[in-house]
Design a protein around this nucleic acid. Structure first.
Length: 421
RNA sequence: GUGGGUGUAGCUCAGUAGGUUAGAGCACCAGAUUGUGGCUCUGGGGGCCGGGGGUUCAAGUCCCCUCACUCACCCCA
């Protein structure tokens, strides 16, 4: 094989695309219902946006960015996530002057340079929402609930994990005490490294000996200020009121620097090591960081590829729709015109282009999941009629060509998917 | 970046201690039914056995290198 797709990418072939589309439709309908407006930002941005927005010490910026120089010698980066670009657009177009809160949803590919494995790609698809301009705990609740509803509509069981990582001051105090605590204890090399850069990352370590060292460590709860604590309590209260089950995990630390207060992840137990289906949180400082007015915000991003993995094999059975025209070479031109007459009226109809036998044409009709076959051979045309065969029941009837189009339009399941009611 | 596993037909895989012309199921094409699908039967097309080098009279099989895929670590979607 001479040409392959690049490592970590995948083709979405028609059969898979049906599932992909179904997931997207669910996201669009639900976002719209919640009042979120569709937004698109470029696939690439100036690298500085992510360096500043996502954070220099994050894995994304340190080793996962697809960066390149354009002909103007500017450093560009294929977007590794969706929030920073949206905040950039929010600031650039001064959208903060419109009525708040602002609600946006996005859908599209993201890029991170990592070794691929099950459920992890270098180009992957995310659906995300962002709500900007309100500090209300109900904003957090709304976003979390929206994601929860999305998984529910797709019938994907997930567990919700939430945490409160407080404000910048809270975290500074907490990091200080974590450093003190771990300084006198043995940790793995990775953790010693993390301790210097971002002690919160140590909490994520799965190394058993590190886990053991964490048993008596200080928890962030003790360092949360009153305001942040009250906010989080209100969020949890909202989730309880809406019967959204959650689990608190004081060790949930998300990989992006801009989060504060509420963080959350939707998890599955069916994908092995890649158990995160999505996550998000509050990012009250990002708008200001990127040059806008101080504007609180909250949002999530969900991984579509992992959803597909969970849902493959559970696709809806294909519905039989539309026509297949069966004809013979001697009258092919005449018959083809009838196919186009029907197409002009919105009827889904296809016919053989490979000179196949009648039998093979019927087989193709069956395989293509057509509901009907329209037979227009020399015999039928000579009689001024066409034969319509129901491929489900096997019943066949003859119809005068005069009223053929109208007759077909009165049959069920003659139009393309999504256009027939 | 680090480790493990796997590379044989479009797909899933078999291939015995190295031994003639590399197999099966599914899929595809055709015929049985000379104008009628699904089921069945019969036949057919389709393989640089990932690539390169080596050992041997002989390599899909053994050795070395390499590439790719895959799983896991790190981290995340």
């Amino acid at each position: 094989m001479d040409y392959r797709l690049p490592r970590g990418t995948r083709d979405i072939l028609p059969q898979q695309a049906a599932l992909f589309r179904r997931i997207q439709d669910t996201a669009v309908v639900l976002s719209d219902m919640y009042g979120y407006g569709e937004i698109h930002t470029p696939i690439f941005e100036y690298s500085e946006l992510f360096q500043r927005g996502v954070g220099e010490s994050t894995d994304i910026v340190e080793k996962e960015m697809y960066s390149f120089q354009d002909r103007g010698k500017r450093s560009l980066t294929l977007r590794p996530e969706g929030t920073a670009p949206i905040v950039r657009a929010f600031v650039e177009h001064k959208l903060y002057n419109e009525a708040m809160p602002a609600r946006y949803y996005y859908w599209g590919p993201m890029f991170r340079y990592e070794r691929p494995q099950a459920g992890r790609y270098r180009q992957f698809w995310q659906y995300g929402v962002e709500m900007l301009g309100t500090l209300s705990p109900w904003a957090d609740v709304e976003v979390i609930k929206l994601g929860w509803d999305f998984f529910a509509r797709l019938d994907i069981p997930t567990s919700l994990v939430v945490n409160n990582i407080g404000c910048a001051d809270d975290r500074a105090n907490y990091k200080q005490s974590l450093k003190q605590y771990f300084n006198s204890r043995p940790l793995c090399d990775d953790c010693n490294n993390r301790l210097g850069r971002n002690p919160l990352r140590v909490l994520d370590c799965k190394n058993p000996s590190c886990q053991q060292q964490m048993e008596d460590m200080p928890l962030i709860d003790q360092y949360i200020c009153t305001e942040c604590a009250q906010h989080f309590d209100a969020v949890l209260g909202g989730l309880e009121a809406l019967d959204v089950p959650f689990e608190r995990n004081p060790r949930l630390v998300r990989g992006l620097d801009y989060y504060n207060r509420t963080t959350f992840e939707y998890k599955t137990d069916k994908l092995g090591a890649q158990d995160a289906l999505g996550g998000g949180g509050r990012y009250d400082g990002l708008v200001e960081l990127l040059g806008g007015p101080s504007t609180p915000a909250v949002g999530f991003a969900l991984g579509i590829d992992r959803l597909e993995l969970l849902m493959s094999g559970k696709e809806d059975p294909a519905i039989r729709r539309g026509f297949w025209l069966v004809t013979m070479e001697s009258v092919e031109n005449q018959a083809a015109l009838w196919a186009y007459k029907l197409r002009d009226r919105g009827v889904s109809i296809d016919f053989d282009l490979l000179g196949r036998s009648i039998k093979a044409q019927f087989r193709q009709a069956d395989r293509s999941n057509c509901r009907w076959a329209l037979v227009l051979g020399p015999d039928e045309l000579a009689k001024g009629k066409g034969a319509i065969r129901d491929l489900v029941t096997g019943q066949q009837e003859e119809v005068a060509l005069d009223g053929l189009v109208e007759h077909v339009l009165n049959l069920e399941g003659v139009k393309a998917n999504g256009t027939d009611t």
